[in-house]
């Protein structure tokens, strides 16, 4: 696919002998929001952890098949470099507790030993916080610790920290599941804005969120990619009975 930024080809993932992702083939277009849906244990989180090569950090975990980031096989890219290109935000906000808000945003640079001038630092902090829709709320307290922020603000700080590295793909693993509806709405609005610049792949159990936010939805079941399509199609006329049973809550 011409506009494909991520491409999974005959991809499998294992925990020891246990095959948890089975022959996944998927093309993720640039600047689209994709949601991976599926019941617990279907392999959603494993899938996105494979995309930034975190899966292989688990003892006994391995993969087969290929994943391409803009036509480059990700398994040929240094994992640390790869994770700058493919940023990830987790379920629970995890700002570095000892760092200020500004230092949290710059953590990707400092932890990688990348030197920046003061002007560059200021610009990155401001741009990233603006992109994460947090700037107006924190611009006067950049030296305060990130952990003083509310849960929703902390999660946006984590998004700002990821955006600071100018990734090509943003992975969100249930990034709003620990947040209240107001914070969730802010993150959803943010996702909507961010898709102008980034390709976003998110995992959520909140189907209405998937319907509201994503352009495309993929349904995984027992490690198999059952179907993927425009979100509108998946939520109005899924092709596969398993998808219909899952989204209408009649699973099992």
């Amino acid at each position: 696919m011409e506009d494909s930024v991520l491409k999974l080809k005959d991809f499998n993932a294992f925990f020891g002998e246990n095959k948890v992702l089975k022959n996944i083939n998927l093309d993720i277009e640039e600047r689209k929001v994709w949601t991976i849906l599926g019941p617990s244990g279907c392999g959603k989180t494993t899938l996105i952890r494979c995309i930034n090569r975190m899966h292989e950090m688990t003892p006994g975990a391995h993969t087969s098949g290929q994943i391409f980031l803009k036509e480059k096989d990700i398994f040929g890219i240094n994992p640390v470099l790869l994770r700058r290109k493919i940023g990830m935000v987790f379920q629970r906000p995890n700002p570095f507790p000892t760092m200020s808000i500004a230092h949290n945003v710059l953590a990707g640079y400092s932890l990688n030993g990348i030197k920046l001038s003061k002007n560059e630092r200021n610009e990155i902090v401001e741009t990233s916080l603006k992109d994460a829709a947090l700037w107006d709320e924190v611009k006067d307290k950049l030296s305060q610790k990130g952990t003083f922020l509310s849960g929703g603000q902390q999660q946006r700080l984590c998004i700002a920290r990821t955006l600071a590295m100018k990734p090509e793909v943003l992975l969100l693993d249930e990034a709003t599941s620990a947040l209240d509806p107001v914070s969730t709405a802010k993150i959803e609005e943010l996702i909507f804005q961010l898709k102008n610049q980034y390709t976003i792949l998110m995992v959520t159990h909140n189907m209405q969120q998937a319907a509201r936010v994503s352009d495309k939805t993929a349904f995984l079941f027992l490690g198999e990619l059952i179907e993927y399509n425009d979100t509108k199609e998946i939520f109005t006329n899924p092709r596969h009975k398993k998808t219909q049973d899952y989204i209408t809550g009649r699973f099992g």
Partner: peptide, 9 residues
């Protein structure tokens, strides 16, 4: 119940 798919239809 925010119905989808066949339920919504």
């Amino acid at each position: 119940f925010s119905p989808v798919a066949i339920d919504l239809r």
